[in-house]
C-alpha cells in the first residue's frame, strides 16, 4: 500500500510538471485560494473555498456510498436471478383446467395449473440489465429527475417534487444505485457461472436445497472471485457521482466548477479535486486488497493468481 501511495504521489508530480512545461503555458497559479476559510477579499477569497471542497468531498462520498448499498444488494439479487436455469413452479390455487396445455411459463398437470415463476424472474432480470446498461447514465438521471415525477400518479408526483428530502441528492443516489446494480448483476452472474458445474451437482447430491446450494456453495466462492471487478465498479460509483452536478448536487466536481466561476482560479480547484479523487481511489484499492487477502480461501488457485 505504501508503494501504491508513493506511485500516486509521483504520478501527480510528474503530470503537474508536464502540464507546467507544455507550450507557452502561462498561468498565474494562486494556490493560496485553496486555503480560504472565510470571505476575505484582500486574500482573493470570495467564498470559503476550503470548506466548499470539503463539503463537495463529503457529498461525493455520501452519494457514492448510499448508491453502492442499493447497487450491491439489488445487483446481487438480479445477478442471482439471471443464473436460474430451472423452473420454479407455483400452483395456481382454486383453479382447475379441464384441458391440457403447456407453454414455457404456464402449464397443466392432472388439471392443476402451474406457473413457472422462475421464467418471469429470469426474464425480468435480463430486461433490467439490458435497459440499464444501454441508456447513458446522464439520460437516466434526467429521466428520474424530470420525467419520472410526471409519470407516476399525481399525488406521488407532487410528493416527489415537493416533500422528498434533498430531492437532487435522493434522485442521484437512487439513479446511480439502479444503474450500478446492472453492472454488479453482470459481475455476480459471471462469478457464479465461473464456478464449475461439478460443485453445484456435488452440493445437490449431498441433499442441499437450491437455496442452500446458493447460500453455502455458489455465493461464498463467487463473491470472493469477483472482488477485483466489484472494486472497479465501486470506484465507478465515485466517478459517476460527478454526473449529479447536472441536476444540482454540489459534489466535489460541482464545487470546483463553482470555485472556478468565483475566483477564476480553476486549475487550482481542479487539481485539488483530482488529488482527492486519486486519494479515494488509492484508499479504496488498498482497503479492497486487504479484504481480498483476509477472505481468501486457502488453496484456491484462482484467487491466489489474482
Amino acid at each position: 500500500m505504501m508503494r501504491g501511495a508513493l506511485r500516486v504521489g509521483l504520478s501527480v508530480v510528474v503530470l503537474l510538471g508536464l502540464t507546467g512545461c507544455a507550450g507557452d503555458f502561462r498561468y498565474n497559479w494562486q494556490w493560496s485560494i485553496l486555503t480560504c476559510t472565510s470571505e476575505n477579499i484582500d486574500a482573493g477569497c470570495i467564498g470559503p473555498y476550503f470548506y466548499w471542497i470539503l463539503q463537495g468531498l463529503w457529498w461525493t462520498i455520501a452519494v457514492a456510498s448510499a448508491a453502492w448499498v442499493i447497487a450491491f444488494s439489488l445487483g446481487s439479487v438480479i445477478g442471482i436471478l439471471r443464473t436460474l436455469d430451472k423452473p420454479i413452479l407455483v400452483v395456481v390455487p382454486f383453479v382447475k383446467s379441464p384441458i391440457y396445455f403447456r407453454t414455457r411459463w404456464i402449464g397443466t398437470s392432472k388439471g392443476i395449473i402451474t406457473v413457472d415463476v422462475g421464467w418471469f424472474l429470469h426474464g425480468f432480470a435480463n430486461i433490467y440489465v439490458t435497459v440499464f446498461r444501454n441508456v447513458p447514465l446522464l439520460v437516466q438521471l434526467f429521466l428520474w429527475y424530470f420525467v419520472f415525477p410526471e409519470l407516476v400518479p399525481h399525488d406521488a408526483g407532487m410528493w416527489l417534487k415537493r416533500d422528498l428530502p434533498f430531492p437532487e441528492v435522493s434522485t442521484a443516489i437512487f439513479c446511480l444505485g439502479l444503474y450500478t446494480a446492472s453492472r454488479v448483476a453482470e459481475q455476480v452472474r459471471a462469478g457464479i457461472n465461473s464456478i464449475s458445474r461439478g460443485q453445484q451437482y456435488a452440493a445437490m447430491a449431498i441433499g442441499l436445497t437450491p437455496v442452500q446450494v446458493y447460500r453455502y456453495v455458489l455465493l461464498p466462492v463467487s463473491f470472493r472471485i469477483i472482488i477485483p471487478p466489484l472494486t472497479s465498479d465501486f470506484l465507478g460509483v465515485f466517478k459517476n457521482s460527478s454526473l449529479a452536478l447536472t441536476i444540482g448536487v454540489l459534489e466535489l466536481t460541482a464545487m470546483t466548477r463553482q470555485i472556478e466561476e468565483y475566483s477564476y482560479a480553476g486549475f487550482e480547484a481542479f487539481t485539488a479535486a483530482t488529488v482527492l479523487y486519486i486519494g479515494v481511489t488509492a484508499i479504496v484499492m488498498g482497503a479492497m486488497r486487504i479484504v481480498e487477502a483476509r477472505v481468501r480461501i486457502p488453496g484456491m488457485i484462482s484467487l491466489q493468481a489474482k
Binding site: L15, K239, S242, T256, Y277
Partner: peptide, 12 residues
Amino acid sequence: FFRSMPLILVIF
C-alpha cells in the same frame, strides 16, 4: 491516473 478520474472532471 486517468482511470481514477471522473470523465466530467477530465472534460473540464
